[in-house]
Design a protein around this nucleic acid. Structure first.
Lengths: 230, 230
DNA sequence: ACAAAAGTGTTTAGTCTACACCCATGC
DNA sequence: GCATGGGTGTAGACTAAACACTTTTGT
């Protein structure tokens, strides 16, 4: 007995809130200008319909790659939005994901002529299609809460970074100033950073030491019951 | 121009992981025995198809009421499960919710003859339909993580409770022993409990003082930047 | 030599942890 | 009177917060 359920079905899409840090340590979100109706010409999150034979996460990765060329980035499910009237034409449920990317390693560009890709500061978002403003608000809350308890901030930085870059990132996302000495002492005491034999170059002042995140050691400590907290 | 999107569509369901504390301070999950195919006769989470004109949360509340008679309980979205083969017959995406309930205030009973409702301890679950074991695992993780940082534990207790009941709940969910004096000092210092002029009755030892949770004050403190943490 | 950011310790207040005994009640 | 859980304080270890100057480098 194989049949398909005969209930009327909603459409299901995935949408991605992609965060990136620009050169001035500003947290930005990637938006695309829609080339098709509805909301043609307005800004929206990258996303699209889930195919019947792909997982939700696979759909999110696929859409990101198709629309922005981005691959191999940190991606996690955020929340599922399903108010009946969130799409003007049809019942559409969207499973939202959020992604973290470091801009220096991932150049972004529109993949189709009909769409444009741009980075917008969270404080200065344009008018958005659908309920994408709500999705972005939820994603901002999530990243803010998560940054304290999981080492996800490193996803936003280049592989080699300075302690000041890391601190600026935390200050930016958490929206508060942090004490330099206390911040350094705390993060270094966790012993999750690898002190590299390499310095910053091309700066007009004393060059800072570069560090990288020890992902393997973190996984090991986590299994042993360690909790990252900053 | 009104048309509906013409992609092939998955089915969308909601499933609910309902947690309750029994009289022995054991954390249990409510399961129903399926009366229909697929997995007829096996145990599963209460849930069902989302109607086209209702929100996801409304669907979860409706299914809970229809299948178990439960109303007005704490309910929050958990995660959306969408592996292509999680339902043997059709592509079904399920938006999972978790709920917290206090058993003394909410008697539970099957609403249809074809289905049976029962409470199972998390440690002794029966074989489950679909991927409901994974959904339950995710819900257990969530509640464990959330209990520390949000006052959701009170949803599992009667409105009036003793400090020992509260402590036992935390010990049960977190899976660790807590020190009685430290626990009491910490929770009382937050000043979120109302000390009632009422004592426990019907116990064969010194009666404990009853307390209730001050929800209004919590909301107020939260707005002012206070973070619950235990 | 100066501008700009890197790097580095100490003191103080507050919080967390471990720990043991008397109290009230019902049987 | 005894069994059962209720209720209470303190000392020592640790953690968090506040705070300012010297060093290095490029221009």
């Amino acid at each position: 007995m194989t049949y398909t359920y005969d209930y009327p079905k909603p459409s299901v899409t995935v949408d991605c809130v992609v965060f990136g840090l620009d050169a001035e340590h500003d947290l930005k979100i990637m938006l695309i200008q829609r080339g098709v109706e509805p909301f043609k010409g307005e800004w929206a999150l990258p996303g699209g319909f889930v195919k019947l034979d792909e997982s939700l996460e696979a759909a999110a990765f696929r859409e990101l790659k198709e629309e922005t060329g981005v691959e191999e980035i940190f991606l996690e499910q955020l929340y599922t939005f399903g108010t009946p009237d969130r799409d003007p034409r049809d019942r559409v449920i969207t499973v939202a994901y959020y992604a973290l990317i470091n801009l220096s390693d991932h150049p972004i560009h529109a993949q189709t002529d009909a769409e444009d890709v741009a980075w917008y500061s969270i404080q200065e978002l344009p008018k958005l299609a659908f309920d994408h403003d709500q999705i972005i608000a939820a994603a901002s809350e999530r990243i803010k809460g998560k940054l304290r308890y999981e080492p996800i901030g490193f996803e936003l930085l280049p592989k080699k970074f300075t302690l000041t870059q890391l601190q600026k990132l935390y200050e930016q996302v958490l929206g508060m100033q942090l004490d330099k000495r206390n911040f350094r002492r705390k993060i270094l005491k966790m012993d999750l950073l690898i002190k590299l034999d390499e310095m910053q170059t091309g700066v007009a002042h004393r060059a800072a030491r570069l560090y990288s995140f020890n992902e393997g050691k973190y996984q090991e400590l986590k299994r042993a019951g360690f909790n990252f907290e900053l």
